[in-house]
Structure formats: structure tokens, C-alpha cells
Design a binder for these strands. Structure first.
Lengths: 137, 137
DNA sequence: TACGAGATTGCAACATTAGTGCAAATATCT
DNA sequence: AGATATTTGCACTAATGTTGCAATCTCGTA
């Protein structure tokens, strides 16, 4: 609970019920969350628009980052220590379980470097592995 | 042009104007295409629904595959030889250029294996690198 | 503790993107 | 060319995301 306030204050965000609740969800969730998950888990206590804006604020501040997916959903997950405003460092692999459909941040698995063709300047890399997770195996 | 018919026939698809045009677009495009790109490039000659259905059919048949993106867009790109119905083998890296915003299949760059934590069974991996492409550097 | 400026929220309306059923049109095979 | 099965387009519905603005809330200051 202290952690919640810490994070919000560290990012110069005023503490509101919505931000507390949504941040709490992320802190207590092992995986990534979609907008829809958040609405479900808050019993729609907050307006859709508020959720959108809160997520956007959190991304801007570097509290959460989004994860690429092949379908058209946007997933969000907590950033680790090294993320700051406008400067994300989430260079870990994400895992999507085909059975339970959860997305999990593998914080200890860093994205390997790849050799690109001539002329390509890489700046950022994302890697998503899908399969069966530890819980579902 | 022969190639077009070949691909369609090989996949037991009847040859229609829409499928020809859309497949032609993919064959002549260096990068990935979104639904919107296709509508633009065909001057809306085909119904939106037809485009959706055609893309879905192509994915099902293994002619194209979709590419994960961090925003909420769905991108499609041609599959290479080894893709068959219900069985994609597009294990190459995708590159998104921050300047021209194009998505390019780096067919020669294969996705490296990663060591996952205990209990995780990987089945498929996606990797997207962003930065500046050869044309924009 | 009460106040006020500024930030945040909720509502309503709007915009975009995607999916479905069904009748009309088209492709394929003979 | 004609029959059959597939494909297309239209109308409708649904889900998802965005914007303006008034009401509400937060936080520093008194």
C-alpha cells in the first residue's frame, strides 16, 4: 500500500481512487492486463474514459509499458526500476500462455541482440513467446 | 501474374477480382500492410467486409501472416514458402521504421532461441525491432 | 481545517474499426 | 451454357477508442 503511494508521488501524480485501484491491479497481477481486464476487475467502478486516460498517463510516466500482440489487443504491464518518464527500458521477453491466455513478463529473460541487414539502425526490440506456461503445463 | 493464379489455385481458392488485387498488393509491397492500406490502395473498389474476409482467408490458408504491434493495428505480410494451411513458419524478425513507419519482413534474420524459466514450453516466438530503416537512414 | 487553483473524472456525443446474416452476383465444373 | 457452391455487397450490430465540457476532487497554503 505504501508502494502504491510511493509510485504515484514519485511521478508527480495526484493520488486518486482510480489511479490507486488500477495501479494496485498491476502490482498484484503476475501478467499483463488489457483495458477490458481492468474494467472487469474494477466492476466498472470507473468510467471507460478514466481507464483509458489513466493507462495513457501511466505509460507516459513510465509506470507501465505496452506489449505487442498479433491480434488487435493492447496489453499493459508494469515497468521495472529502470523505466523513467519518456524512457522505457523494458527489454525483457513476454510470454503468452495459449491455455490460460495470460501474458507474463519474463523479467529475467533479456531480448537477445540480432544482426540486422546493412543500413538498418535498431533502437528498440520486442519479443513475445507463446506456448504453455508453468501453471498450465 | 502467373504467380498470382498459382498461389490462389494452390490453396484451392476460387479466383476473384478482389483476391487477385489484394494478393497483388502483397506481392508488390516490400513491407506489411494494414487493412486500411489495402482499402486505400484499391480505391475502395471492394467492400470493407470483403477485405476483412479475404485477409482472414489468406491467413487461414497460410498465404499471409499477421505481425504483432504495440499499438492496436493489425499488420499482414506475405508468408514464405514454408507456410501451409494451419501451419505458419514465419520465424523471421520484423522491422518497423520510426521515420517512414513501414513494417518490413527481414526474411533472412531468424528469431534467436531464448532460454525460458523452468516449466515454460515455448511454441512460437515473435520479434519486432524498431528503429531507422535502410531507406530512411 | 478551510480555501482556491489546477488537475481529474464522468457524461454524452462522436469516430473508427471489426464482425454477422442474408440475398444477389460470381466462379468453377461438367 | 447451366447448375452448384462460393463469394460479394449491403445493412445492421458491436466493440473500441477519442474529445469537449461541466462537475468534482486533490493538494498546497493559509
Amino acid at each position: 500500500m505504501e508502494q502504491l503511494l510511493d509510485i504515484l508521488k514519485k511521478n508527480q501524480l495526484s493520488v486518486t481512487a482510480g489511479r490507486k485501484k488500477i495501479l494496485e491491479l498491476f502490482l498484484s497481477s503476475p501478467g499483463a492486463l488489457a483495458h477490458a481486464d481492468i474494467e472487469k476487475n474494477t466492476d466498472a467502478a470507473f468510467d471507460r474514459v478514466t481507464v483509458y486516460r489513466t493507462l495513457q498517463t501511466f505509460v507516459d510516466k513510465g509506470i507501465i509499458h505496452n506489449i505487442p500482440t498479433s491480434d488487435n489487443s493492447i496489453l499493459y504491464a508494469l515497468c521495472k526500476d529502470k523505466c523513467e518518464q519518456g524512457h522505457h527500458h523494458d527489454n525483457h521477453v513476454h510470454f503468452i500462455c495459449d491455455k490460460c491466455n495470460k501474458t507474463i513478463c519474463l523479467d529475467d529473460v533479456t531480448i537477445p541482440e540480432v544482426r540486422l541487414p546493412k543500413g538498418f539502425r535498431p533502437k528498440h526490440a520486442e519479443m513475445v513467446v507463446s506456448g504453455v506456461c508453468d501453471d498450465c503445463k
